[in-house]
């Protein structure tokens, strides 16, 4: 397969996943920010939303104040923000257009239709719609639907060959990064000791995290008890049945990288690195992670995950 095609498939999946994650973050942040003052920690919800999507610095470069309307605009329609939902979908479509022959008709149509719809919404927004917090909701639903549609199309229509594996590798790399960032921003409310300190105040923070990864119901299925911060961390890091957990993502990454290795008859640094990360997750317990420090664990994970991206590029895309 053409190296550029693989690269585009990989990034295409990443952009779509990123758009989806950004939409979710906006959604939960809006909920948190709408709570009465005495249910909230200290304000600053919108800053942490920016931090969770890794856009705090670029935001500060163009806006002075992290108000809801500023942040929502920045993360949704802002053409100047390279990781806004708009730009993600645009990039996704550009990538898709470049490699149309490698996509199934369904995948292309989900992206193309999504992009055309976004352009229409953008027009309406210029006309005054989708400006307030309430009216942004249908837009966020739309973004999640595009992502669902694309992901579903890929899953249902692609041949199980290297094209599919690169697509999945992109998806899981991005998802692992997103989950890790979300925890990194909220790690202070996930520490066991904060149960005493924060008390019920933090309940809304915890459920917000679960909501961001669509895991409220999942949590109760897995743990059958009330929401506890370390269990959230457990769910998002170690639980393989949770499709956004680091363990699940790396389970997928090693599997798809192995498929590539087998098909090409050659294993490389990328395979070894992914397996190492998976082994570390597998052998960890929440106790050991808290001992090491959740923040440190997550930071190291983000670095390792980035390194995997670089190794994949080196091994398959830019040799």
């Amino acid at each position: 397969m053409l190296a550029r095609t693989a690269e585009n498939l990989y990034w295409l999946a990443r952009y779509i996943e990123r758009a989806d994650f950004t939409a979710r973050i906006i959604e939960v942040t809006a909920r948190l920010a709408a709570l009465p003052q005495n249910y909230r920690r200290s304000g600053g919800e919108w800053e942490s939303a920016l931090a969770a999507v890794g856009a705090l610095n670029s935001f500060k470069a163009s806006f002075s104040e992290a108000t809801e309307s500023n942040v929502v605009f920045f993360l949704t329609f802002d053409e100047a923000n390279p990781s806004s939902i708009r730009r993600c979908l645009e990039q996704a479509r550009i990538n898709a257009r470049t490699i149309r022959t490698a996509l199934t008709a369904e995948m292309w149509q989900s992206i193309n239709a999504g992009w055309l719809e976004l352009k229409a919404m953008e027009e309406k927004r210029r006309g005054g719609e989708y400006s307030g917090a309430d009216s942004i909701q249908p837009f966020l639903e739309f973004v999640k639907a595009v992502s669902l549609d694309f992901d579903g199309s890929s899953y249902r229509t692609m041949l199980r060959n290297d094209a599919y594996w690169f697509n999945r590798i992109g998806l899981y790399c991005e998802r692992a990064d997103n989950t890790a960032r979300l925890m990194d921003v909220k790690y202070n409310v996930l520490l066991p000791k904060t149960e005493e300190v924060g008390g019920s105040l933090d309940y809304f923070q915890w459920t917000a995290i679960l909501r961001a990864v669509s895991a409220q119901t999942a949590y109760h299925w897995v743990y059958r008890e009330s929401v506890k911060p370390w269990l959230i961390a457990d769910l998002l890091i170690l639980r393989k049945e949770m499709p956004r957990s680091l363990a699940y993502c790396y389970d997928g990454l090693t599997r798809f990288l192995d498929s590539l290795g087998k098909a090409y008859g050659k294993q490389g640094l990328a395979q070894r690195h992914a397996r190492n990360i998976l082994r570390r997750i597998d052998s960890a317990s929440m106790e050991s992670i808290f001992q090491q420090g959740l923040h440190e664990f997550v930071t190291k994970f983000i670095e390792d995950n980035n390194r995997l991206g670089a190794l994949i590029a080196e091994q398959y895309l830019h040799h």
Binding site: M1, Y264, K266
Partner: peptide, 23 residues
Amino acid sequence: IELVEGHDLSVREEVVYMKTTQG
């Protein structure tokens, strides 16, 4: 057939190669 752009191809010893995931 593959749809290639210029930078997907390279020339070595007067032979043209395309860059694939397998070299």
